[in-house]
Every structure is written in C-alpha cells, then in structure tokens.
Amino acid sequence: MEGLLNYYAADSFIHRLNPTLKLAGIMALMVAVTMAFDPWTPLAFFLLGLFMLKVLARVPVRQFIRPLLLFVVLGALGFISANAFFYTPLPGRPVTILWQAGGVRIILEGIRVGISLTLRMLAIVTLSILFVSTTDPTDFVLSLIQQARFPFRLGYGILVAYRFLPLWRTELEIIRAAHRIRGAGERPTLRGRWEQLQRYAVPLLASAIRKSERVAIAMDSKAFGALPQRTYYRDVHVRPMDWAFLAGCVLAAAAIVWGMAQLGLLEGYGVVPEA
C-alpha cells in the first residue's frame, strides 16, 4: 500500500545501520527535542534530521517533501492558534498580551510556543522519515526479533500484515464498487461515512481473518517454530558502527541542548530564561 512514506532502497551509511539501534538513536533525538520549548532548539534538531536525510542517507527531496509540507502547514495552524489564546505561563512569570477583548486575549509567549511546537513536529516528522525511508521493513522486523528479543511469531505476523497491506486497498476498492452497485450510496456526511465504515469493515475484516488463518496453516506446514532454535538467511548484524551511531545521536542531542544553553536560547530542560 502506498502510504505517505515509503522505503527508499539505496546504499548509504544510514541504510546500512542496524535497524534496532538506528531506531534507538533516532528515538533518543525525538525524546530530546520534546523537552525544549524555545523555537531554536527544535529548529536545530530539524536541521540535523534534514542533514542526515539528505546528505548522509542521500534520500532525494521528492521522497519526503510531500508529508513534510502537509503536516507542517496543518500542524502550524493548530498549535500556533491554540497556544496564542490559551498559553499557560510558568508560575510567577508575566505574559505579554498583544490584544484583548472580553475574556479573549492573544498572548505573545503563546505564539512563540506555538512556533516551537510546530518546529518540534517538523523535527519529529523529519527524523521519522529518516528511519522509514532508509529501513527495509523485513530487516526492521528481523532485527527486532534478533536484537530486541521481540517474540518471533508475532514478528513474522507483522511481516504478513505488512505484505497484505496492498491487498486490503484493492479489496476495499472492490467492496466499495460492489456496494455501490447494490444501491448503497456514499454520503459525504459524517453519519454516512460512519455507516460506510461499518458496512465496509465486516467484509474486509472477514477476508483478513480468513487469509490469516490460511497463512498460519501454511506457515505451520513449514514447521514454523517447531524447533527450539531457528537460523536466519538474512542475518541482521550489529557492528561497532551501529553503537557509534547511537552514541553519536545521544552526543548530538546533548551538544545541541548544551550549545543552545550557552547561546542563551534554550528554554525547557529546567532552564528558564531571564524575564
């Protein structure tokens, strides 16, 4: 199924990393960015993500520009407008009111936080794109099984589920057409969509369940999980470079936070700038 993101097959330093450790490194960056409330720190993380995506992983811009723009524009609208009106300052800190009418007021600091949150989303989306577009889904799951001790039957289940994704899209299209011929119109109202969801869900899920059962029997017929041990045709390795990447991510996050603090731009992480 074509999502907004897809794996972009290529050979680069980032592509070759072990998926589990790559995920850990990227998650570390993501968590680090969520603890900052100024606009500059997330901006730095965003630029770091973009650098890794474009320069280190050599993923072409057309591969990621669409989701980036879509989410950013919509996210910005929401975060900035909401925080402009309903920002909560830290205790004892004054707020700058730009405009006030009755109980409604627009707060400068809120707008600032809104921008910060938008940049935070930008950074998170970029880092996620970095992971998804440089990681082969099969390697990802195999690595979870081999390195992260993920239950292997469930892991192979995820591969089955992933393999089925395009099929559900086709099935859904057929079901829609079939129901339209039955005279079931699609109404654009919320209630109409709700009814459709239910009407489509049963045939789609029934088909998914049947196919799962068949696949499970087919897998068992090949002795899936029959032996206490199993070998792997695709061995997903952990090399020193993978640990280096994880360490690099943690160091980069620390460096950005420390640097921003030195520059006096950091908010969050216990740092409260001078009023």
Binding site: P151, L154, G157, A161, A208, I209, V215
Partner: peptide
C-alpha cells in the same frame, strides 16, 4: 507480556498481527 506472547500459536500471532495491521491502516 513478551514471555506470554512467545507461547501463542502461529494462528493467534498471525491473527493478532493482521488485525492489528488492518486497524493500523484505519489509524493512519
């Protein structure tokens, strides 16, 4: 859970994953 999940049959594992996957599309 992970120790428990290891004890599931293939059918239970595949069913969980496939239903999770279909619902994942819905999440998306």
């Amino acid at each position: 859970s992970s120790a428990e999940v290891r004890r599931w049959t293939t059918w239970e594992s595949i069913l969980t994953a496939v239903l999770g996957g279909v619902i994942g599309i819905l999440f998306w």
